[in-house]
């Protein structure tokens, strides 16, 4: 009797979120996979029967270039974010305790302001008549005719800007728990400061680094707005093609096949994550109090 009531209660508590997510997350994802194997019809809808035609079409010279660009832009963004996040997270964790909270707020606040506003801010800053351009021209760093906008580098810059807080926060969280006396010990034993940083500190915050990589890489792979607003046709990513196939060409099977491909690209790093994260025992048992 009691067993049964317990089971009922569990179902009662689980059903609302479970049901909602099955209907509005699992089913639509499966619909996308299915439509990738359907032929399009002339009216922008979905035809009858099944086909691999869409997949064969992805071999067309257009797509490999975009897929390749999506991968390298996301990987470079991730690398740059982590490179900037490591010294920042380290510095924040070593700052006096009363400074840590304000420093964290400083990192998080830009991330709370509207995403579109931040992207637009860069557009203003890099505008051909903008202050930055004029400064660079005055310093003879760029020619007057060079555009700072609509280039792959611009997209990369704004991607790094947008996802940097996602990398800093996990690195900081891991550094905060790191026992810095280990670094002192390494230095006492004769290790150079940099050597201690690389061989003691970085392995110590490995999980934080991996989380940072995942937090940047996954949304970067799915970028749509940033290449759309900041880039030209030479900086399109898979996300732009998905939107274009959905809204402009109205070729839903094509959009679905690209979406499936993107999904695989996202799942791959997630599947590899446990391999790198390793066993639990490298985490420090002496957890410091987190503010």
């Amino acid at each position: 009797m009691n067993q049964r009531r317990r089971a009922w209660r569990e179902i009662l508590l689980t059903a609302p979120s479970f049901g909602w997510l099955v209907v509005l997350f699992v089913v639509p994802t499966l619909v996308v996979f299915a439509i990738a194997f359907k032929p399009p019809d002339a009216l922008g809808g979905i035809g009858h029967g099944w086909t691999l035609g869409t997949w064969r079409h992805l071999g067309n010279p257009n797509y490999p270039a975009i897929i390749w660009r999506t991968l390298w832009m996301s990987l470079v963004t991730t690398a740059l974010c982590v490179l900037l996040a490591v010294p920042t997270g380290y510095c924040m964790a070593r700052a006096p305790r009363r400074w840590r909270q304000p420093l964290m707020l400083l990192v998080v606040v830009p991330f709370w302001t509207s995403f579109l506003v931040r992207v637009f801010a860069w557009k203003t800053l890099l505008h051909p008549d903008g202050a930055l351009k004029r400064l660079l021209v005055a310093l003879h760093l760029v020619a007057d005719s060079t555009s700072l906008l609509y280039r792959p580098e611009t997209v990369l810059l704004v991607l790094v800007y947008t996802y940097l807080p996602f990398a800093i926060l996990p690195v900081y969280a891991a550094s905060e728990k790191f026992d810095f006396s280990l670094m002192e010990a390494a230095q006492d034993l004769g290790a150079h400061r940099f050597r201690a940083f690389v061989s003691v500190f970085l392995p110590g915050i490995r999980r934080g680094l991996l989380t940072a990589v995942a937090m940047v890489l996954i949304p970067a792979l799915g970028s749509y707005v940033i290449p759309d607003v900041m880039g030209g046709t030479n900086s399109e990513m898979i996300g732009n093609k998905i939107a274009q196939r959905t809204f402009v060409d109205r070729n839903l099977p094509h959009a679905s096949a690209l979406a499936t491909l993107l999904m695989l690209a996202v799942l791959l790093p997630l599947a590899l994550y446990p391999l790198f994260a390793g066993r639990n025992n490298d985490q420090k048992p002496d957890r410091k109090e987190v503010a």
Binding site: E10, S17, L21, V32, G222, Y224, S256, M263, V266, L270
Partner: peptide, 28 residues
């Protein structure tokens, strides 16, 4: 076991890029 599946179900949307979530809902 139900909660294991439940957890996966709750966790998955966090790692799916927005554009995929948006497109799949549109198709649905």
């Amino acid at each position: 076991r139900l909660q294991k599946v439940h957890y996966g179900l709750v966790y998955a949307p966090l790692v799916v890029p927005d554009i995929l979530a948006g497109m799949s809902l549109l198709l649905l």
